[in-house]
Design a protein around this nucleic acid. Structure first.
Lengths: 207, 207
DNA sequence: GCGGCATTTGACCATTTGGTCAAATTCATA
DNA sequence: TATGAATTTGACCAAATGGTCAAATGCCGC
């Protein structure tokens, strides 16, 4: 009955539903606190069906975290779209803010994973991430040498960017509690986004 | 045999040992992932003994998080030691950095608690924290009115401070991986501390 | 509409979990 | 040193957990 173009394979559709549920449960309960039963219930499938698509809880978790990793890489590339520090940093910080906004659950899982000592992504930290930081630090140091930025340690700058942007995902609940119980609407978020960019960039540009 | 002045009560000493172990396990495994058996083993006591001092896992967790809350309040007070924005902000950010340094595990638990929607500390968020933010925001707005700070939304400033400082606790493992596998020594941390303060303050002070 | 593959699912299992209990031991102090 | 309270702990338990399995059902090209 379904047109071939519209119908996605049963497998793809079910994996999507399970991954979506898993993301929510892992974000809220952590890896240890999440149960496959809770994920299955949330996805609306019997637990045995979940295990049909993802043999173990760890495999499911890995699949979830891989999506975040992909998004991380995409955001990272926005740093390289300009050689002007103001522009490059603004773009990068903005992309990170957007990521926190569009993937809050994934961002939380990422943070949680790192807090636990990165049992699943240690390899990524040691290779891809370390390389990225190293090479972009060189660029930042060049900007400093050219008198465009105040003399700072680039790594601590990246930590600051990661922390601040991630916070809008990690602490979404805390923030909405403080903001009278409502989570940031689009215009408030846009304001926060601009302010984060401005504060960091203004704090860095040499004068 | 023990002198009364030296000897602490058995109860106090055992509670301390258990709390210390609990802090480590909760930080690494999250509330859901932590097991009372693991905490007891780490504390070097039988599980039944742990339950003698802390009847439930939740009660133990509450005791751990209460210590963090106390430390949070102490750091918060450092904001009020000066009416000069540069000085007040520097002190406050510095105190937060020191907190992340001295209580990394507690800070991680705090972050984890908030990520999960603050099931244990929602009341604190709604009352003490919301009030603190509200009243300190008024001060910041006054500074802005006096032309001392760029026009910003104070709440987003606090989010930025919390995020950046907490990050040095939350992401300690990620950071040490990037820094060639060694965690920040005192002098490197001091550098990071100064840079965080400088970047934020410079990004805010009106010019 | 048939044959074979993909999918579904209730029942089941071994292990782990938070927590209990009662008996034994240690401690403080009168 | 006698006594009652505080502490210790192995054994135990019901519930929950991650995961399995085989039988049933659905799907799709021929």
């Amino acid at each position: 009955m379904n047109k071939p173009l519209v119908k996605v394979s049963i497998r793809a559709e079910n994996e999507r539903m399970i991954l979506e549920a898993a993301e929510a449960v892992f974000a809220e309960q952590g890896f240890g606190g999440a149960t496959t039963a809770a994920i299955a219930t949330r996805a609306g499938v019997p637990k045995a069906n979940l295990h049909y698509y993802f043999p173990t809880k760890a495999a499911l978790y890995r699949a979830v975290i891989e999506r975040v990793l992909t998004a991380w890489l995409a955001a990272a590339s926005s740093f390289d779209q300009s050689d002007d520090p103001r522009e490059a940093l603004s773009r990068y910080i903005g992309a990170k803010m957007d990521l926190a906004r569009s993937m809050p659950l994934g961002s939380q899982i990422w943070a949680s994973e790192i807090m636990r000592g990165a049992p699943f992504i240690q390899d990524f930290l040691e290779t891809t991430l370390a390389d990225w930081v190293e090479s972009r630090s060189r660029i930042v140091r060049r900007w400093i040498g050219e008198g465009k930025l105040r003399p700072i340690e680039p790594r601590y700058l990246f930590y600051m960017i990661w922390a601040t942007t991630q916070h809008y995902a990690n602490a979404a609940h805390e923030i909405s509690t403080i903001e009278n119980g409502n989570s940031l609407d689009d215009s408030k978020f846009e304001l926060a986004r601009r302010q984060v960019i401005e504060t960091i960039v203004e704090g860095l540009i040499a004068r």
